[in-house]
Design a protein around this nucleic acid. Sequence first.
DNA 1: GTAGGGTTAG
Length: 744
Amino acid sequence: MACRISHRLLLPSSHLLSSTILQSRPLDLIPAFEFPAPTFKFLIIHSPFSSYSPSPLFDFHEEDDDANPVDLDIFYTSLFDDCSHQKHLTQIHSHLIKSGSLESNYLVTKFVHTSSNLGEIHYARQLFDEIPYPNVFLWNAIIRGYSRHELYDGALKLYYGMQQEGVSPDGFTLPYVLKACSSLPALNTGREVHAQIFRHGFESDVFVQNGLIALYAKCGLLGCARLVFDGLCERTVVSWTSMLSGYAQNGHPLEALKIFSEMRAADVKADFVALVSVLKAYSDVEGLEQGKSVHCCAIKSGLELEPDLLIALTAMYAKCGQVQVAKSLFDHMSLPRVILWNAMISGYAKNGYANEAVELFRKMVSTNARPDSITLRSVILACAQVGVLELGIWMDDYVSGSEYRDDVFVNTALIDMYAKCGSIRHSRIVFDRMPSKDVVVWSAMISSYGLHGHGHEAIDLFHKMKLARVEPNDVTFVGLLSACNHSGLVDEGWKYFHCMRDYGIEPRHQHYACVVDLLGRAGYLDEAYDFVMSMPMKPEVTVWGALLSACKIYGNVRLGRYAAEQVFALDPLNAGHYVQLSNLYASAGLWNDVSKVRVLMKERGLVKALGYSLIEINGKLQAFRVGDKSHPRSKEIFVMLEELEKKLKEAGFVPNTDSVLHDLNTEEKEESLCNHSERLAIAFGLISTPPGTTLRITKNLRACVNCHSATKLLSKMVEREIVVRDANRFHHFKDGLCSCGDYW
DNA sequence: GTAGGGTTAG
């Protein structure tokens, strides 16, 4: 107990401070202290450390050098350790003032630390500002506090202030500063800091260098990050993780995994953060098996109960389609954090479990967990993916009553959702009510019009966007071009494609594919081919695919065969392309070639995707396949189908049986066409909704010619509006016509 | 007292 006293604390007489009280809760004592009448000439100090056996209080005379002084730093340290409330800070603060301890950078640093950990960063700043000459430790504490409270700009300002005061940063300052730079992110400032790091000679400080890796990785400058990483002579698990997650976050999961195996080869043991980062990389490549091996690795290392790792595992299983496994992990958490709810809900959304996503969201709300913008966007995405308008409207209502009612991201998701649920009118309502619109909002609305074949509205909105002085980006043009495309506006599309460069936007594959589609569908096949040949980059599969489907429409076997060869070379395992070529041959009556394609498909183990249609009745989705008899009301459905078929025949409807299902005889062909999944869905919709109700159907494939003509007629006969979302776009059938103008 | 991570993605 005999240590030098460094600061003076004047306490009232000894009997107030029984050692037992002091050992229990030092802070609770402080309010009881009477502050010094100047007559108190004694310092009475007691260490509140409970590990000490009860010891007598030490009374000693201020001027008595031989007394038993106790280190006040230790005393305060224990006070700070017990500090759990702002009220305590206030008490310590006045204590520090009265005892004249504010001259101690050490104690003020402690104070700043403690108040920042308690979330009282402004209080910390207040005290900091009272100190005339902060040393580097104190600067570090306040910068750290700002960084921890995500006040990154403030942290950087303090850093500049520190240098103006002539205090040089040390190996602790720089990681905090780099953290602030990478969180903003502020790349230019970060580069300046890098130069200072060089000047101050921190090239071999692994903490500082790790900060630089993280900074460059966050800013997407993987080359710079790698340079720093490669230059390190000592690499900690943090260096490896920073590099690994840099690759994972910038869309290079394979590079990330390579780093991971190098790390293991270097005998660096992965901790839980490293495993979390690896899981992200595996989830991105849907590497379920490898993800599972990380799970095993976690169990072996005893990390499986680490909550953050469990969140990452849940996200991985959910993303890879193993929603049940994910849910069982989820259910084991007693108090799920928002990020876990989000991982589970978005996992449901991604895998088409809209009802589950919404149910879990409801549960989340009922447990008083606070959804954030990501939660809302995930649920809205779920509604959009399966096209359930009723649930979508419910989400819109929820958003309107929440703090996210003006959130740009959430509202953009709503615009997109309404469009995908078939109600462009609702999309526009959301769009109009948004107080501020960025380029993404405008682009979403333009694409929505495109999806519904409202090309002129899309173009009109594009001009309004320019008037609003919002600069278009490449996504805007994808929306605009595909809108022209879906409406057959060839000249306009051609014009907008060529004006992209005026906006400083270099066309990408998607834009080229749109133009090929545009020219091809309008019958300009040779022009489309020349256009592909003039591309400055190697055409991707989407470009050749667009040409192939144009050839299919116009029965151009020669060019179609060539386009198909290119498509197969680039994407040999997509059954859809083979089906298209086969249909092209069939429409030209080239049955030999048809069977060759079928054989090729068989050899490559490819199966044509089964068609299905979904219809939403009373907020519940019902799915139908071709000739599906599994529905409980199947009998009624087929009675209705027959009735409809009769009416169609009476109206003179003759199905076109030439180009489809060549391997069946004609009668069978007709029968299975009548059983196409969308017809079943329509029949079911008719028997389960009151007259006049709009039917909304979602298909996984493109609408077939026969069903399209039949649905047009049906819309008139049954006096219903029928909205069909196919794999590509929307068709609004009404009064015998379709909004696509038979152009799809 | 230092640094690295997971949920969205038009």
